[in-house]
Simulated scan of single mutants.
Amino acid sequence: MDKEAIEKDLFEIYKALYPIINSSKPQTFFNSKFIKNFKYTPEEVHEILFASESKELKIEKKEVLRDEIANITQIDELRSYYYNSLSNLFSDIEDSQFINMITLPELKYLYSIISNIPIQKRKTKLDIYYMIKNYFDNEARTQDMIKNL
């Protein structure tokens, strides 16, 4: 299979359907979920699919997790990583240096181990670090309270 030929064919289909979808009564032919997929003009789609510069930008923006973080899958492993690495790293350096030492996708991944609730897009690295820190601080405080019962 030729990827470029498939992309070209899909673009031609999109370009042919776009005027129909934007006509006065597309609901008679297509359901609303299908119609919502046509939010981009054919020119925008063409630019994304066939501009080599935009493809290179996508590749550059995609970040990969470091192996030491990607290998963390359980909360016990995260707890160990937090107390042995992350909290020590943060306490030894300034906020601005910490920002450069760990990526946002890495922190989001670590937080996803703790909670299934998605992180809001406006959250910064420090916000997510403090969310992780608060989780483990509260866990330690709870354990201490239970011990004294």
Results as ranks from 00 to 15, higher is better:
Lys15Ser: 12
Phe50Ser: 02
Ile13Gln: 10
Pro42Ile: 04
Glu43Trp: 02
Phe34Ala: 10
Glu44Pro: 01
Lys33Arg: 12
Ile21Thr: 10
Val45Leu: 13
Phe50Leu: 07
Tyr14Leu: 09
Asn31Ala: 02
Ile48Thr: 00
Gln27Gly: 11
Thr41Asn: 07
Asn31Trp: 04
Asn22Cys: 03
Leu49Cys: 04
Thr41Met: 08
Ile48Glu: 01
Ile20Asn: 04
Ile35Thr: 10
Ile48Asn: 00
Lys36Ala: 13
Tyr40Leu: 15
Ile20Phe: 07
Glu43Leu: 12
Phe29Ile: 13
Pro19Ala: 06
Tyr40Arg: 12
Val45Ala: 03
Ile35Cys: 10
Phe11Gln: 02
Ile20Cys: 02
Asp9Trp: 10
Val45Thr: 01
Tyr40Pro: 05
Lys15Glu: 14
Ser24Glu: 13
Lys15Gly: 01
Lys25Thr: 12
Val45Asn: 01
Lys33Glu: 13
Thr28Asp: 13
Lys25Leu: 10
Pro26Gln: 11
Lys25Tyr: 14
Tyr18Gln: 02
Asp9Thr: 13
Pro42Trp: 08
Glu44Asp: 08
Ser23Pro: 09
Tyr14Gln: 11
Ile48Arg: 00
Glu12Lys: 14
Pro42Asn: 06
Ser32His: 06
Phe38Ile: 08
Leu49Thr: 04
Glu43Gln: 14
Gln27Phe: 13
Phe38Pro: 11
Asn31Gly: 07
Ser24Asp: 13
Tyr18Thr: 03
Asn37Glu: 14
Gln27Thr: 11
Thr41Trp: 04
Lys36Val: 05
Ile13Pro: 01
Phe34Ile: 12
Thr41Cys: 08
Val45Pro: 01
Thr28Gln: 15
